[in-house]
Computed example of a mutant assay.
Amino acid sequence: MTDLDRPVWATLAHAPQLAEGGELAKRYRRDVNMFASARDDSDESTAALAGLLHPGDTVYVLQVPVIRIPSGLTLAREAQGVQMVATHSIDAEDGPDGIVVLGDAEAAEMLALATLTEPGPFLERTHTMGRFIGVRIDGRLAAMAGERMRFPGFTEVSGVCTHPDFRGRGLARRLSSVVANNIQQRGDQAFLHAWTSNRAAITLYEKLGFEFRTDVRVAVLKRQP
């Protein structure tokens, strides 16, 4: 078992400023993201995970091992994904539209774009998880990509999305290449996740230089009000 098999836990164990919880289970701060993880699949750890949810709360669990549903929580949704890792150097692709670094000033625009396109859980402070970049066209945020989970030696490419009005221009590929290249320039290995059913995204990432590592499980867990 490696950190990549339980990336949410690996990230939160090294990012106390983003985390809530203790030694057995952690979740992201509620304005940052919806992911949570137990340290392992023991009864004690899964019970601690359940204890992090208030009535009505929902969290996402993403890991390679089979996900145990803690007592007191219900399974609202489950899905299959793939985890891919960059296996060689990725060149940052240039383009006609300038790339801008996104931050607090663009938080509302980023949230609106992510809400429209649904690249994965994205909240008002998700952009604080790592470096995000975007492309503006006619003053509008047309596309973005950034970093999400991060632990020693690895950083995840995530939040890749394009507004429907600007699709077909290669913006997602371009931004993903820049994010992955920047990760590699820091000395980390880039990795990412995609839904198993999203063949278009998987094909794009394969062309960039990512290879399939493993299947991952995703569960949305909820504590009833």
Rank of each mutant, 00 (worst) to 15 (best):
S45I: 02
G134W: 02
R223Y: 01
L204A: 12
R174I: 11
L204S: 11
G51H: 08
A114L: 07
A108M: 11
L192I: 10
D138E: 15
L208R: 06
G22Q: 11
L204P: 05
S42K: 04
G146L: 08
E44Y: 08
A13K: 04
F166R: 07
V101T: 15
R223F: 01
G51I: 11
T155H: 02
G139S: 10
I67A: 00
T115Q: 14
F132H: 14
F35M: 15
A86C: 10
A219C: 04
M129A: 13
G56I: 00
R30N: 07
F154P: 04
R169K: 15
V220W: 08
R186D: 12
P65W: 05
I99N: 07
E147Y: 03
I133R: 06
V61N: 02
A76L: 07
V61E: 00
A112Y: 02
P55Y: 01
R167H: 11
R173E: 13
T2N: 15
F132V: 13
I137S: 03
G103V: 14
A76E: 14
A114W: 05
R148T: 08
N181K: 04
F166N: 10
Q224N: 12
L221R: 00
A107G: 10
E118H: 15
T58G: 02
V66G: 00
L141M: 11
Y60K: 10
A142M: 11
A201Q: 12
G170E: 05
E20L: 15
P225Q: 04
H193E: 04
Y60G: 00
V218T: 00
G51A: 15
A15D: 07
A79Y: 00
E44N: 08
G139K: 11
K26A: 14
A143K: 09
